[in-house]
């Protein structure tokens, strides 16, 4: 029984997403770059974004972390393609809300990434899920500043 909560978070799609992440790697050409860390657990995420005509036209991430942070980064990178920085900022807010509350009215704008909502039952893992999203919001608003 205890595992139903686990299953809700780790649904096959998340495990699969983490094992076969999309947009994993590095870009030869990019406009924004950031490295973020989750100091309490040592997760490191390196994110690169290239923009064209005010929209994200390519993105890649690398680094290491748990299933949740890797799956989340994979889903995030897929969802922000073709979006404007302003749209992405809104998505990041919605995503944070969803992960904390488990449900929000505008979850649709997150596309497949909404599957991560099961994380809300594991407060200790919220930061794992939001790491990549916060990195995206930060790098797009601060224009490519790295934290170290």
């Amino acid at each position: 029984m205890a595992l139903t909560k686990l299953d809700q978070m780790y649904r096959a799609v998340i495990l699969d997403e983490a094992q076969h992440p999309r947009h994993h790697g590095v870009l030869a050409d990019f406009d924004h770059e950031i490295t973020v860390r989750n100091p309490s657990c040592g997760d490191v995420l390196h994110l690169q974004i290239s923009e064209k005509d005010g929209r994200v036209n390519d993105v890649a991430f690398s680094g290491n972390g748990c299933t949740i942070s890797q799956a989340s980064a994979s889903l995030m990178t897929d969802q922000i393609l073709d979006k404007t920085p302003a749209e992405i900022e809104q998505m990041v807010e919605t995503f944070s809300d969803l992960i904390i509350k488990g449900d929000v009215p505008d979850a649709d704008r997150l596309g497949d990434a909404a599957v991560l909502k099961g994380v809300h039952q594991f407060p200790a893992r919220i930061k794992c899920a939001t790491l990549a999203w916060k990195a995206a919001a930060q790098v797009l608003t601060e224009k490519g500043k790295t934290d170290d």
Partner: peptide, 20 residues
């Protein structure tokens, strides 16, 4: 990842530490 192991164990009421 150790954090995934920790969450799994926590669900079985086992408190261990995972991290650096």
């Amino acid at each position: 990842h150790p954090h995934d192991v920790a969450t799994f164990l926590d669900e079985q009421q086992i408190a261990i530490r995972a991290g650096h």
